[in-house]
């Protein structure tokens, strides 16, 4: 099992720069949107953009897209546990601090 698996070939410079441009673009959008009053959607949009950005970084800069699937499983387990924990915590909070 311990034969040395060579890490996969990395994509070219061009793809990285493209991803970077996308990240900068998303940053601009999220900053610009902060100027508008989106009421209840403010947090949702900001977080959605942050999630897209982090997906770009993990998939391309961190090569998760092309790497061994085991890393995707690891990350999924970690995120899943985190989400479950946060949801269970809010079952308590929404009762003790009801929204007015």
């Amino acid at each position: 099992m311990s034969e040395n698996t060579h890490t996969q070939q990395h994509p070219g410079y061009g793809l990285y720069i493209l991803v970077w441009a996308g990240l900068v673009g998303l940053t601009t959008i999220t900053v610009a949107l902060a100027g508008f009053n989106l009421a209840g959607l403010t947090v949702v949009t900001a977080l959605a953009i942050a999630i897209v950005k982090s997906l770009l970084v993990t998939n391309y800069f961190m090569h998760v897209k092309t790497d061994s699937p085991v890393f995707r499983v690891f990350i999924f387990v970690c995120i899943a546990i985190f989400i479950v924990v946060i949801v269970l915590t809010f079952f308590d909070l929404t009762y003790r601090f009801p929204l007015k």
Binding site: T7, T30, A34, T42, L47, A50, S54, V57, T58
Partner: peptide, 24 residues
């Protein structure tokens, strides 16, 4: 590559900290 991964993680954390503290 490992050092790079670490650096990207620092970046990802900031990607979330930034909107949560500065934009909302």
């Amino acid at each position: 590559e490992n050092a790079g991964l670490y650096w990207h993680l620092v970046d990802i954390i900031w990607i979330f900290l930034f909107p949560l503290f500065y934009l909302i």
